[in-house]
Write a protein that binds this DNA or RNA. Structure first.
Length: 270
DNA sequence: TCTGGATGTTCAT
DNA sequence: TGAACCTCCAGAG
């Protein structure tokens, strides 16, 4: 589930497992082999995340820049790493050989220097998961844009880390119709979205999945039968087309919007 | 067993 | 705006 919360969680996990150690890095069957050889045996000093971009920093000054894309995944294992199965782009193993991670299917996995890392970060809007970031720069873009708020929330240059699930859910929670132009929002509406995203995504980092339903709206609280999500979290509208809205009972709608699936409740978000 | 779709980005047109 | 790229899984047949 690679939205921003997944990446920040991975940054913490890479640091917890490998931080401060000389790690073995290999690329068993991938095009990352040369880069892996360059950092193999170096000390992993820090990890960083901005939006959906993950950075693993080495004492040599090199950073591994990872973007999971739609399919990328990191598998974690204890004990000595077994023979890799399938395509593993980057395998990292502790100095003691008691833990390892396998990165599969990322859109991006390459070695960059400090300047290149800064360039990547400079292209991104503020990240709700970074405490030092504010929503001001995003508001500047949104308040002058004729593009829909649905499309703007997915534009990583406007703000970063939000994907299709958080987009659908935060707009529902704030009662904002996704088709409204950015510039039709007032500052209070944007502040509401930004202020809601922060704790929502922080909770995503903590638990490792996207839960957005307020306690008073859970199926139990509403006296409805429990539902099983196919993406591991409890949500209001994401992939719930045709189902009754948890709050008002109106059928949740879906459409393709800017080449992505959009979900909303036409009544709660009128 | 095969097909299509998916939480994302980038490049070409 | 559409295709391409990476992988996995549910559903169809």
């Amino acid at each position: 589930m690679p939205e921003g919360h997944t990446i920040h969680r991975l940054a913490a996990e890479y640091h917890r497992v490998f931080g401060g150690q000389a790690v073995a890095v290999s690329s068993p069957q991938g095009p990352f082999a040369d880069a892996a050889a360059r950092i193999d045996g170096r000390v992993l000093t820090e990890t960083d995340a901005k939006g959906k971009h993950l950075f693993l920093g080495f004492a040599s000054g090199d950073w591994v820049h990872i973007h999971l894309g739609l399919y990328g995944k990191v598998f974690w294992g204890h004990g000595p790493a077994p023979e890799p199965v399938g395509q593993v782009r980057m395998r990292m193993t502790t100095a003691a050989d008691d833990a390892y991670s396998d990165l599969r299917g990322p859109t991006k996995c390459l070695l960059v220097d400090e300047g290149e890392k800064r360039e990547v970060e400079a292209r991104l809007g503020p990240d709700p998961l970074r405490p030092q970031d504010t929503g001001d720069a995003a508001w500047k873009r949104i308040s002058s844009s004729r593009t829909t708020i649905a499309a703007l929330l997915m534009d990583q240059k406007v703000l970063c880390g939000v994907g299709n699930v958080y987009r659908a859910e935060v707009l529902f929670r704030q009662g904002v119709n996704p088709h409204r132009a950015g510039r039709s929002l007032d500052r209070a509406e944007w502040d509401g979205i930004w202020a809601d995203l922060r704790p929502l995504m922080r909770e995503g980092v903590r638990v490792g999945r996207i839960d957005t339903v307020r306690p008073e709206h859970t199926p139990e609280a509403m006296g409805r039968p429990p539902r099983q999500d196919d993406h591991g979290g409890e949500v209001y509208v994401y992939r719930r087309a045709g189902q009754p809205c948890l709050v008002c009972g109106t059928e949740v709608r879906t459409e393709e919007h800017a080449a992505r699936n959009l979900f909303w409740c036409p009544r709660c978000q009128s």
